[in-house]
Design a protein around this nucleic acid. Structure first.
Lengths: 136, 136
DNA sequence: CTAGATGCAAACGGTTTGCAACTAT
DNA sequence: ATAGTTGCAAACCGTTTGCATCTAG
């Protein structure tokens, strides 16, 4: 069916994890969602699977770099398929959609700022909040 | 004593809030901390004050723009005296210190990126994680 | 005097964990 | 066969809330 779900389950088995029915169901639901989601939403899309398993699987998928976690302004948590590579987020406060973007010049400036503060940079996150093109 | 605590309590009374003993104790503790802190730490520094009051006061101080909230990579929450004005954070993963910086050019690029994605920007947060000058 | 603030303990919401039963490999 | 996985319910942890009491203004 969904190529995404298949490649994700491959990444699981390569990582030495079992590909079980609950996990497949969760991966399908994520692929179908097609965007950012909360654990709450994911759980309701896979009623046959226990809450704990959803949590455990999402954590596993993060570790396998299939999913990435996005923290909203209010501290609430969402997940979405990770696009891989370094990028930033445009987060729509109306529909919740998270769009990725990247800008080498932006990253250069970020490193420059860190450097001039004597700061040894490990990671950084840049989240833009507002309204996306279709909601504005 | 601390000028900071005094000016903060002024901001409270100007906002129509009472300056009570617990609130003064909390403001003192924050001023003494001199850096970012968790609710947990703050509570233990003011043993005479109830947990709920610490939470309520910290929320009040955020609304009064005395404190700002910083969310770390792992989703945990810290607070620190707000420097006012727009700025970003350098967060040391070793000692937890949060240093502010700002860069107009950086902000310009951020708005540019939002604009070219058709995104109507309300706010943004940029957090740099790594090790500060003294820890590196 | 009285609206606002406090402390306590109970409630809460999201996440995790212990455990016995199950299953992919 | 057996280590990994699951579901359930209970535990957890940070935060909020209801309520009776107290106090700054």
């Amino acid at each position: 069916m969904t190529t995404q779900a298949e490649s994700s389950s491959e990444r699981l088995s390569v990582g030495g994890h079992r590909v079980t029915a609950p996990r497949r169901a969760i991966l399908d639901a994520i692929a179908r969602a097609g965007g950012p989601f909360t654990i709450e939403e994911l759980t309701s899309r896979v009623p046959a699977v226990g809450r704990a398993t959803v949590f455990r699987t999402v954590k596993l998928l993060q570790e396998s770099e299939v999913l990435c976690r996005v923290i909203l302004e209010d501290g609430s948590v969402r997940y979405q398929l990770s696009r891989g590579g370094h990028h930033h987020h445009l987060i729509c406060s109306e529909c919740g959609t998270v769009t990725d973007f990247s800008d080498p010049e932006l990253d250069r400036l970020i490193h420059e700022n860190a450097g001039s503060a004597g700061f040894q940079l490990d990671a950084h996150s840049l989240e833009l909040y507002g309204r996306c093109a279709s909601c504005a």
